[in-house]
């Protein structure tokens, strides 16, 4: 059946209109705002400043620090979550007693809203009544995320790992279940041991899944907000003021719309570059497979 061009446009136009309304127009507006000095509290109103806001970004020590903190957070979380998820997903391919229960409990954090996760960790880590400081104190560790910057940062990483590793495990389990059986049978005939099978068969075959999962986790951790906001609000000092928190503070508290629009665009650009690099890797790995 031949479909007319007008019919095609008629069918996709509702989606297109919706995308333009909620996607394209806001981005254009942000681009527009980014070339103005515009704060709600300014006496001068909107003043055209060209690319000054972008120039200011390069010299803004607090923005650069929060960006560096955000990227460090992304790197550590992904470096922990991907190998850990892969390991657990592999373990779960074997049959053992209580596997079903373990899988259910493991997936529970995924069902919780990030704000609830943050609130839960606030209670867990509360220096006055929280169980974590109490039990760590019993073994001689003075744990207080209101005072110790390293502990606060480590706790945000641990919280993210606890929340999101189950997602990584589930995607890897799905990936492992879809791998072809033939290479494994061949490796068995050739006398390969478990490590060799994993290293030379599972890992290469699973590479597209690993890269896709990594891609999703990088995006997610880069824009982490709710949990960290609930737990530390970026503190103590600036220890956990990741770039997403810095941006929200600029928009909601400083109401510096021009500068924060420039900041948002820069972060969007950075995200696109990272995405493009990862997508290139994924395409190459899929061709190789």
């Amino acid at each position: 059946m031949r479909v007319k061009k007008t019919q095609v446009w008629g069918l996709i136009s509702p989606t297109l209109i919706l995308m333009i309304l909620i996607g394209v127009i806001p981005v254009i507006y942000v681009i527009y705002l980014s070339v103005f000095k515009y704060s709600v509290f300014s006496k001068t109103g909107m003043v055209y400043v060209g690319f000054d806001n972008f120039r200011k970004l390069v010299f803004d020590a607090s923005f650069l620090k929060s960006l560096s903190l955000g990227l460090t957070f992304v790197a550590i979380c992904c470096l922990v979550e991907i190998p850990l998820g892969l390991l657990i997903a592999n373990v779960l391919t074997y049959e053992f007693k209580g596997k079903g229960v373990f899988r259910t409990i493991m997936a529970l954090p995924l069902a919780m809203a990030p704000v609830s996760i943050g609130s839960m960790w606030v209670l867990l880590t509360n220096p006055d009544v929280g169980p974590l400081p109490y039990f760590l104190g019993k073994i001689g560790v003075d744990y207080n995320i209101g005072v110790n910057a390293t502990q606060a940062f480590a706790t945000t990483v641990f919280m993210d790992v606890w929340h999101w590793t189950p997602f990584v495990i589930l995607t890897f389990m799905a990936g492992l279940a879809s791998l072809p059986k033939d290479p494994y049978e061949a490796s068995l005939v050739d006398g390969a041991n478990r490590w060799q099978t994993f290293r030379y068969i599972t890992l290469p075959l699973l590479r597209p899944v690993i890269l896709t999962t990594l891609f999703i986790r990088i995006m997610d951790t880069f824009r982490v907000f709710d949990e960290v906001w609930m737990l530390t609000s970026g503190g103590p000092g600036t220890a956990t003021r990741f770039v997403s928190i810095h941006l929200v503070r600029e928009v909601l508290r400083s109401m510096n719309y021009g500068y924060s629009s420039a900041m948002s665009l820069f972060l969007l650009y950075l995200t696109i570059v990272i995405c493009w690099l990862l997508l290139t890797f994924i395409s190459i790995s899929q061709e190789e497979v």
Binding site: S39, F41, S62, V147, A149, G235, P236, G237, T238, A239, R249, R253, S254, M255, N256
Partner: peptide, 22 residues
């Protein structure tokens, strides 16, 4: 102080660093 909201945010940025010992 009509600009007290952004001013508070700036004060917070620096005072929180002093409170944290940074």
């Amino acid at each position: 102080l009509p600009m007290q909201t952004p001013l508070n945010e700036l004060y917070l940025q620096w005072i929180s660093r002093a409170v944290a010992g940074e």
